[in-house]
Amino acid sequence: MSKFNFIKIFILALFLSSTNLVKAVEQNDPIKVNWSFKGLTGKFDRASLQRGFQVYKEVCSSCHSMQYLSYRNLGELGGPEFSEEEVKAIAASVEIEDGPDSQGEMFFRPGRPSDKFKSPYPNINASIAANGGAYPPDMSVLVKARPGGSNYIYSVLVGYEDPPSGMVLDDGVYYNKYMIGNKIKMSAPLTEGIVEYTDGTQPSVDQMAKDVTTFLSWAAEPELEERHRTGVKVIIYLILLTILVYLSMKKIWSRVDSEV
């Protein structure tokens, strides 16, 4: 054993432990959802983004921060596209600590569109302490930070079930069919009717899960629509240029007795 030192044990242990974990419990592939924002020309569903923001604001944001987003992002093209008035109202609904003022005092003021999303806890330790030792991850890039992305987030939200018989769960631990390892410290966040959609959509768990996942997908990739749009133009341009250069090349090489 002595010739195995830190790094070798470390790497081996990692692989062994993680694969054993996967073998020990049933691991389900995430549900495949036909998201509107997938594919070469995919776009977000605007109404779903707005509803998703409502779910985030009324449910998720009590524990999960979204520190890299600003309120102004909510009004930007390619996002939920709230009106300027709505964005101002959303921002003004939170109290932001600012300062120091000319007297050296910190003070509170209503939020402005330029402010970052207010975090529910002052720091990570506070959020862990308030959540039974589990850190509620920041949601800014959560979709990009999980294998399976949007499908995975959606699946976890709808994957709460009673544990299989024989599985004993500690207090504050819940069974989730799709969570990696099947154990999650977040209780099922969505229940039928937990939010009241302003556009009259029926707030079923499935609907809310889809809406909030759409919102989180936008939050992680706010450039997605512009990226897709630009990408299509760039590829078309490159193909046309390639054809032109190919024809030029054929013409130039016709001067010598060699193929190209």
Partner: peptide, 19 residues
């Protein structure tokens, strides 16, 4: 011109990943 042609084909793949 031949390098340019090949480079453009390469750039199409590159752009596919990026976008």
């Amino acid at each position: 011109i031949k390098d340019a042609f090949a480079l453009l084909m390469f750039m199409i793949v590159f752009a596919g990943f990026v976008f």
